[in-house]
């Protein structure tokens, strides 16, 4: 056990990452934060539409798109990867619709069939063309966020440069934020009431497909460095935590961003301590935050519920006791 879990050392695991490894760690935390923010904001709308698992499906099924884009373009360029992911995302969405609408298979089973098939194709392509694709199977799942800082840098100004993946992810996160602010009303209305949206002149189908497209873009820009698991988790976990803490959408969005920052920061420390997968550790911290919110949420947390129930048992309100004469 002791060789598995090293003793916790404040100096080494909390202070040192910021004194010694600052140059690398800041990029890792920023990358995790950007991924979690972009995914979390998109994920909030998926959850409101009860499509959380469609997000899960798409984050798996962009894999063949990426693999084919690699094979055709022989590069890790942004544009071919985005195109591959968009096509794969659309194919998933359409496959799910077709299976669900044209046969009597229910939607949940249709999701399960569509994404596993595409993911299987992706994994096979990767293992067949491993030398060309430059991705390995494990990397697909939990990525290599630790290598992010050593990627090719983009020279932003004379004195400041950022690694390409972080730069790209940052742009995606900022654009996501802008979309969420600009199209707040459209997204909100079409998520809750497609009928009302249509009567207000909002094309709900278009919003749906636009959301799916943007989801594919977000997933693919995160995929290469952090893997599928962090993407899936970040689509749901920060948002779900925020949902437990507030009922107002703007607050939920803000909390989502906060949770994104916290889980990526704490994840880095956890991974430094346990020396395990960084993406995995970030998700573990996001899960811990969720469990904390679940227990301690002032709105509807387990503790509040328990206290409420206990009050009900201990002191029955007198005025409603009817004494028979």
């Amino acid at each position: 056990m002791s060789e598995l879990i090293p003793p916790f050392d404040w100096q080494q695991h909390v202070i040192a990452p910021w004194t010694e490894g600052f140059g690398a760690n800041i990029w890792i935390v920023l990358m995790g934060f950007f991924v979690a923010t972009a995914c979390g904001l998109v994920g909030n709308y998926l959850m409101m539409r009860r499509m959380a698992l469609v997000g899960d499906a798409i984050s798996h099924s962009v894999l063949p798109g990426i693999a084919i884009a690699f094979l055709l373009s022989h590069s890790r360029g942004t544009v071919p990867m985005f195109i591959g992911a968009l096509v794969a995302g659309m194919i998933t969405t359409i496959l799910i619709e077709v299976i669900h609408k044209k046969s009597r298979v229910k939607q949940d089973a249709a999701i399960g069939i569509a994404f596993t098939t595409l993911f299987a194709i992706g994994v096979i392509l990767i293992s067949l063309y491993a030398s060309q694709v430059d991705l390995d199977q494990e990397c697909v799942l939990y990525g290599e966020i630790a290598f992010v800082p050593f990627g090719e840098p983009v020279q932003l100004t004379d004195a400041f440069s950022a690694p390409v993946p972080v730069f790209r992810m940052g742009i995606v996160a900022v654009i996501t934020l802008i979309f969420v602010v600009l199209f707040y009303k459209q997204l909100l209305v079409s998520s809750f009431d497609a009928g009302l949206a249509t009567s207000l002149g909002i094309n709900a189908t278009f919003v749906h497909y636009a959301l799916m497209c943007w989801l594919s873009i977000t997933v693919v820009s995160a995929f290469e460095s952090v893997g599928a698991i962090l993407v899936i988790a970040m689509l749901i976990l920060p948002g779900a935590t925020a949902f437990l803490l507030s009922h107002r959408l703007p607050v939920i969005h803000a909390l989502t961003v906060l949770m994104a920052a916290l889980s990526s920061l704490l994840g880095l420390h956890l991974a430094t301590w346990l020396d395990c997968s960084m993406a995995g550790a970030m998700v573990v911290m996001a899960s811990v935050l969720f469990v904390l919110a679940w227990i301690f949420s002032p709105l509807d947390g387990l503790l509040v519920r328990w206290v409420r129930q206990r009050k009900l048992h201990l002191e029955p309100p007198e005025e409603i006791i009817v004494v028979p004469k």
Partner: peptide
């Protein structure tokens, strides 16, 4: 769906 995704990821 959110609960399933949560548990899966966590």
């Amino acid at each position: 769906d959110a609960a399933l995704g949560l548990v899966l990821a966590a």
